[in-house]
């Protein structure tokens, strides 16, 4: 039994090492991908490439942040890409009906909040499994977008706004969506790692029962997480619409898997309670850089998908396999 200062410091370092292990592996992978890119194409690491990488990853990366918080609590949101599609469709439909663009954008955000609230209430209040609920709303929201918009493609958004989808922030090589992602990442990181709320998320993920007994309002927190996720996805939908300067009902179809994969590749445990925002940011950087490298090598997009998909699968299997086995065993032991 010791309570000495030295031990505490030593303990702190040990904990840090434990937490950082996956993240440091990601740093190495990132460097590896950068070297790979530089070998394949001369002058790979230039600011313009950084800009395009950010532009490509923007919406997916932004949606990964609230999803990280949801996965930390042991839940999931598979409706993110459909939410993105629906809010883009709402924005396009209203704009084509003559609404001012700002009002159309605001309406899209409101739709995001409502869509998220539906997920949240069904998961937290009604108590349905989030995977089932959000697979349901994945189809539902995409279906609504289809009814709303198909077969039209809405264009003609004000050039002043669509500009920001394709040019960097003046004086830099940073895409607007990259800046939004980084700002949101900082906010999400602080919430997750330094506030009582973030600690609550971790506890909910590790041991929901204990969270309740510690006075953590589990249901309320979960509902709000889904609402925030809905709003952020709507925001991503707006960004995507502006970037493409057009929107059709199927915008972003299938992106949910990329978003989930980003989060898990970032070292966030699918069982909840473990993970860092730093990991998710690194995961975004790695995937973005890899895709950029493959694009410059003129690799077919289909092959790109296979490469990045394979990489994701491997990296999701490695950190989660040991834990999965342990959990399954625990659960078996706890049965009856």
């Amino acid at each position: 039994m010791t309570t000495g200062h030295n031990d505490a410091a030593k303990g702190g370092r040990a904990l840090w090492r434990g937490l950082v292990r996956w993240e440091s592996a990601l740093v190495i992978v990132l460097i590896g991908v950068m070297i790979f890119g530089s070998i394949q194409t001369p002058n790979f690491l230039n600011p313009t490439n950084f800009f395009y990488t950010g532009l490509n990853m923007g919406e997916v990366a932004i949606m990964a942040l609230p999803l990280t918080l949801i996965i930390m609590t042991g839940e999931i949101d598979l409706s993110v890409a459909s939410m993105l599609g629906l809010s883009g469709a709402v924005m396009g439909e209203l704009f084509s009906n003559g609404w001012p663009i700002w009002l159309a954008i605001a309406a899209a955000l409101v739709v995001g909040a409502i869509g998220g609230a539906i997920n949240g209430v069904l998961v937290a209040k009604v108590g349905l499994p989030s995977i089932a609920v959000t697979i349901g709303t994945l189809t539902l929201y995409r279906g609504l977008a289809l009814i709303l918009l198909a077969p039209r493609t809405i264009t003609g958004f004000p050039a002043s706004l669509t500009q920001i989808g394709v040019v960097p922030i003046p004086g830099t090589e940073v895409a607007y969506s990259t800046a939004v992602f980084l700002a949101l990442a900082v906010v999400t990181g602080i919430i997750l790692h330094a506030t009582p709320l973030g600690r609550g998320l971790v506890v909910i993920g590790l041991q929901p029962e204990a969270a309740k007994f510690a006075g953590i309002r589990v249901n309320r927190i979960k509902i709000w997480l889904y609402v925030v996720s809905g709003i952020v996805c709507a925001f991503a939908g707006i960004l995507l619409t502006l970037k493409n300067a057009s929107v059709s009902y199927d915008a972003g179809t299938g992106l949910e898997l990329n978003v989930v994969a980003l989060v898990l590749f970032g070292g966030v445990s699918i069982f909840g309670g473990r993970g860092t925002i730093v990991g998710v940011v690194l995961s975004v950087a790695i995937l973005g850089t890899l895709q950029q490298a493959l694009t410059q090598m003129n690799v077919q997009p289909e092959v790109q998908n296979i490469v990045s998909g394979g990489l994701l699968l491997i990296s999701v299997v490695i950190p989660n396999s040991g834990e999965a086995i342990r959990r399954i065993r625990d659960r078996a032991r706890r049965r009856v």
């Binding site: 506890v203 590790l206 041991q207 029962e209 007994f213 309670g273």
Partner: peptide, 15 residues
């Protein structure tokens, strides 16, 4: 409230 079941309710075992 110090609950009945330490491992499930009272503590977060992996924290």
């Amino acid at each position: 409230l110090v609950p009945e079941d330490r491992r499930q309710q009272g503590l977060v075992m992996d924290m």
